[in-house]
Design a protein around this nucleic acid. Structure first.
Lengths: 229, 229
DNA sequence: GAGTGGTCTAGACCACTCG
DNA sequence: GAGTGGTCTAGACCACTCA
């Protein structure tokens, strides 16, 4: 008697091998239960897992179809920058560049959902790998949502790590892009003017309220994002 | 009687609100089943979903713990370049630059897992948005794994789309990075020398065999990757 | 050894949606 | 209306692993 994971794997093989082609209707659960000598519930569990993984689409009455893919999904795991540097065997160091409450530029203000007059905590800092600038962190924190940040100096703990401790389960959206180095990036990352940088922008919210917006800039050589799956 | 999804959502709220903090042991399934007035199986389904989403870790006898996160996961959906351009309301066009069987450079040879003497199909082509170069596709295809590719001219269908039709459920690994434009990119993408480009490199395999390796280069302005979740 | 999660069965009812 | 998936229950046995 196969487990649902074995069934899942067999069904996936049939999809990958082309026995069941994209767009095709798969047999109903009851029929597969008969074939595998198991219950419908077990087959159901297997097919739900396939649906979560994006291989099939299921609708009541309509049945289960192999998905026609016009996209590729990839998963990215972004580590705390300190761990990323240390796990690659390099020495990590940290430098606070500036910290203060300011009125953010309009784009950031909109992103944070702030009223026109409200200030936010602006922190800039640098992360080094073996003494070389690795990442410039340019961050705005909403003091409405995280008032505790006002008491934190960020002289030894980076806002990145502090926020992950303080607001561990916020949601986030990331933008990855490339650009020529801005004057600020040129200066702090020790680059020539307009040299390529890799930028991650992240906006983080908790229960509908924006917590923070950050721009993480990296010299293009020595930084890459690798997906898993 | 709550459904497992309702239970999942209640448990997630307790985690997000900090009632159950990172590292904490959660009550056993049997106890929660009592609390929710349902069966252990239903609670189990809810907690398995939380585990798949990365919020908790479960071990027999040890119980279920809220995960201590030092990472952030993000999901990326990469569309076929034609869809990406057309869905943004721009006109898509395609140009084949070159196509032929060649001995690939060593790095690609290793990536494709080819013997030293073996050739592979090398295709270069361009994707335009409103007549402006949007993406340079530089691809190597293993003829051992996809012999049908030898008969395909790629004059109107890009290798990207052809492969997605032909080998729809291969696995892939992506690398995202930034760089200054190479001479080739400078020429085809209509850039100045060393202007920033955003590069996606993708290696694709099917049942342990490498199908293809591709380098997709984009002018940095006008290209970004946005994550979902 | 004993507590915890992993999974199965058999039967049931419900919810959706296609024709 | 009828076929399909979504989910629950009650009970059971097993697999792991901590103390």
């Amino acid at each position: 008697m196969p487990t649902y994971k074995e069934i899942q794997s067999v069904l996936l093989d049939r999809i990958k091998s082309g026995e069941w082609k994209p767009g095709m209707l798969m047999p109903p659960e009851a029929e597969l239960a008969g074939e595998f000598g198991t219950t419908r519930v077990t087959v159901n569990r297997a097919m739900q897992a396939l649906a979560e993984d994006g291989f099939v689409e299921r609708r009541r009455k309509a049945g289960t179809r192999v998905v026609r893919r016009m996209t590729r999904d990839a998963h990215v795991r972004i580590r705390i920058v300190r761990d990323e540097i240390e796990q690659s065997g390099r020495r990590y160091s940290y430098l606070l560049v500036s910290r203060g409450v300011e009125r953010p530029p309009q784009a950031i203000q909109a992103e944070l959902g702030l009223a026109a007059e409200t200030g936010a905590l602006h922190v800039m800092c640098l992360h080094f790998a073996d003494g070389k600038p690795f990442q410039l962190e340019n961050r705005w924190i909403s003091l409405d949502v995280v008032p505790q940040a006002a008491d934190e100096r960020f002289e030894t703990v980076s806002p990145n790590e502090w926020l992950l401790q303080t607001v561990p389960y916020s949601n986030a959206e990331h933008v990855f892009r490339a650009a020529g180095a801005s004057p600020q990036e040129t200066e702090h990352l020790d680059l020539g003017p307009n040299e390529p940088v890799f930028i991650i922008e992240r906006t983080t919210w908790l229960e509908g309220q924006t917590v923070t917006h950050v721009r993480l800039s990296h010299p293009a050589d020595g930084f890459r994002i690798v997906t898993r799956d």
